Computed example of a mutant assay.
Amino acid sequence: MEQTKLTNTQATKKKVLHITYDMRIGGTEMVIKNIIEGNDGSVEMSIFCIEEPIGPWGKDLQDEGYSIHSKARENGFDRSLITAIRKHVRAHEIDIIHCHQYTPWVYGTLAVLGLSTKVIFTEHGRFYPDVSSWKRRFVNPILSMMTDRITAISEATKEALVEYEFLKRSNIEVVYNGIKALQVDLGEIEQVRQQHKLKGGDFVFGTVARLDPIKNQKMMLNAFARVLEKRADAKLFIVGDGELMDELEQQIQILDIADSVVLTGYIPYPKAYLAMFDVYLLSSLSEGTSMTILEAMSLAKPSIVTDAGGNSEVILNKVSGLVTENNSEKSFSNAMLSLINDTDTTLTFGQNALRQFYEKFEQKKMVNNYLEIYAKC
């Protein structure tokens, strides 16, 4: 069922259709949601999902009055999906399709072939380990010729497009993710602290992420066990759910650190936990631009991150946090010990992170960048 948010000036506005997999809770989906909700009204925006169900954020946007259409793609190369997108674009007189991720780009570009509709492709991140194929070496340059603008969410992602997707570096521009700053009531933080029986002197490390091999929480736990050998007052909260839950629970028992680690499971709105952390952790093997790092920065939290993907572009080493060698529990634990033993530096890094957030990663900056791109298409 479609719902459309209309205005009196609708007829003069450009119409932008975001094509994506779905609108479940995730980084790419958060970017789309922020672009739409941060729109100044100069552009009419809608969404076409190529997978179903559309997800909770899709339903939220529908409740706000935005048009969301979906068609679940079939296995293999689904020609009917191309037809469905093309029919939708023509029926709704779409001026620009903004394709998020590779597969939506392929289907979207083919769907508007021969139409006046402009194409924008945004790459939000890469798989680990990154791979390519001989097909893409030939196909992607052709797709690029039919695409008006290509953006990536970090310099690292841009370089991956050059190396693995055979796209010209000069054709790719970086638009960093942006979010609204989180606002958390002190009472919410205290409630979480009391719920988990934290003491006043406890130093809390924490992360918010799906429990997935690419997030490398196993390394994080090993590193934290090293920290506990020297600082028994350390606590670690891992907020999220996923395929590794059972393995992480077993690892915690083997390491004998259950009294100091909390696996909260899935929490829909974990901002109170982020605000409770003294230091935010991200141990990913691969990353584009982590939205939860940005949320932590908006709360003046320093971060310890692995040198993966765009992490070192977001967290400036020894300025807004510490950047460690990728997949090194020794490097990660040393960074954790460094901050737990120097609270003045920890607070300074946090203030630097907050300033950096407003300079570079606030929602309005990202939205304005994309609105400018739309205006030039």
Rank of each mutant, 00 (worst) to 15 (best):
R126V: 13
T28V: 14
F203K: 04
H92V: 04
I315H: 01
T103A: 15
L61S: 10
Y128F: 15
A258N: 07
R226D: 13
D342C: 06
I97D: 02
E165W: 02
K13S: 02
E163M: 07
P104A: 00
T306G: 08
K158L: 11
F332L: 05
I238N: 10
H100Y: 10
Q356D: 13
L113Y: 13
K33E: 12
N171H: 12
E52V: 02
A152Q: 08
R169T: 02
P141Y: 11
M297C: 01
E123M: 04
D259R: 07
Y358Q: 11
E52D: 08
A223V: 01
L161S: 01
K235S: 05
K271L: 14
M297G: 01
F277A: 06
S42F: 03
L299N: 02
D95V: 00
V319S: 14
N34R: 05
V106I: 13
R210A: 03
A234Q: 07
A272R: 15
G55D: 05
I267N: 12
D259L: 00
E329N: 09
T306Y: 10
D212P: 03
Y280C: 01
K360S: 10
M1T: 11
M146L: 14
T12M: 14
R73V: 00
L244F: 06
I54M: 13
V43D: 08
F121N: 04
H18S: 10
H92G: 04
H98V: 00
I238T: 10
G242I: 00
L221V: 02
K330T: 03
Q191S: 15
L113C: 11
T292C: 11
G65Q: 11
E52N: 06
G187W: 06
L143H: 09
K360E: 10
A111M: 03
S328D: 08
E287Y: 05
K13H: 03
L115M: 12
N352I: 04
S290E: 10
I54A: 05
G240M: 03
Q351Y: 09
V227P: 00
N177Y: 07
I214C: 11
V31L: 15
P302T: 05
T346P: 10
Y176H: 08
V162Q: 01
K71I: 09
V31S: 11
I304E: 14
E51W: 14
E188L: 01
Y269W: 11
D185M: 08
N171K: 15
F121G: 05
E123R: 08
K180Y: 09
H88G: 00
L211W: 07
K87F: 01
M245K: 15
G178H: 00
F121M: 06
F361S: 11
V227M: 01
T117K: 02
Q217S: 09
G265E: 12
G38M: 12
V367H: 09
K15E: 03
F349T: 00
A160Y: 15
N216K: 09
G55S: 01
T292S: 15
A111H: 01
V319M: 13
V279Q: 03
K318E: 12
G200H: 15
K71A: 09
G108W: 10
N368D: 13
L161T: 04
R210I: 04
W105Y: 14
